[in-house]
Simulated assay, not measured.
Amino acid sequence: MKENLDFLGISQADLARRAGISIKHINQIAQGTAPLTPETAILLERVLDVPADVWNSLEANWRTQEQRRQDTEILQQQLSWLDRFPLRELVARGIIPNRAKTVDNLRLLLEFLGVGTPEAAENVWGSYKVAFRRSTTKTPDEYATAVWLSLALRSARQVECEPYRRETLVALIPQLRALTLTEPKHWLAELPKICAQAGVAVVFEPAMPKTHLSGATRWLTPDKVMLALSDRFKRIDQFWFAFFHEVGHIVLHGKRLTFLDDNPAAQGDFSSEEEEANKFAADTLIPSTYAEQYRKLSERPKPFSNIERFADLARIAPGIVVGRLQHERRLKWSEGHRLLSSVDFQAHRPAG
């Protein structure tokens, strides 16, 4: 405004008279202490021959700049919130560039989490906890959990799926179970493809310290559900139990709840939904068809060739049978490791 007045040789008082606005208001606009309204922009367009759109754009940019300055001052007072997060993990996963407690890093974290302020984040997570079902013997770090879940959600939203159909997912279970016999590089590629046919977005997010999470399910839209898995235990039996546990939640419980699950095979008190999902996973991996053969095996699991013969009969990976026997205390946790293949998302992720 000042530049235009100087160019035209018009004083602020003259502009005020020409536009029918008080001198005080013109001065406040020039100083940036009063907003330039659309009505004023129209008047200035007539007097100064500068389009109203230009004035409105300048005003919007100025106000945004001022608000960013104020926002920076507010965030500067909230930098301690960063101390609650696993900064090393945030850097390793490309969320922030370094571990410095700066306003820029705080902004990046808020943008990543999809929240406007630290207070909003706390309120959002508080409401989610009502829906989460987690079986755990350890106290989880809710901030690390929020990061892990946000990473999984971002990945899941990128997965293209057919609309969710429960009957399709149920029909695919034998095909999914057969993948337990394949190498990790194969099923890491095939699991998402197969499940996408039923509206399930499967994502693999490497485990994060202090989250104590094996997996999570969450509905993204009425026609798409996320099934996220971690490699927390690095064991084939734990991975596949967690996968079918989450499938159980989707098949049995539909859209009623959002689930965050710790080790679903751990002992402890579970909600009815957790118990149902546990049973679904156990019965899927070792169906009742083989109940008698499994009973005989559990009475005499060694030599380990017995386990391999049963696994071959049931068409399931031997490591899954080892895990079941260990859970039922038919084998010691130190036994059967030769049959337990490892699961590491980073090491086994397919190229490309």
Rank of each mutant, 00 (worst) to 15 (best):
L5W: 03
G9T: 07
R18Y: 03
A34T: 02
P38E: 10
A41R: 05
L43D: 01
A52G: 11
D53Y: 03
N56S: 15
N56C: 13
L58N: 04
W62C: 07
E66C: 10
Q67V: 04
Q77A: 15
L79A: 11
W81P: 00
R84S: 14
R88I: 08
R99N: 09
L106W: 09
T117C: 02
A121N: 04
S127Q: 12
F132W: 15
F132D: 05
P140S: 08
Y143M: 15
T145W: 08
A152L: 00
L153V: 10
E160W: 01
R166V: 04
A178E: 14
T182R: 13
E183R: 13
P184E: 03
H186Q: 13
P192G: 04
V200M: 09
A201H: 07
F204S: 03
T211F: 12
G215E: 10
L227Q: 03
F243W: 06
H245A: 04
T258A: 12
F259H: 11
A266C: 12
E273G: 08
E275D: 10
E276P: 03
F280P: 11
Y294M: 09
R295K: 11
R300A: 15
G323W: 01
G323H: 02
G323K: 02
R324S: 07
A347C: 00
P350V: 08
P350A: 06
A351Y: 01
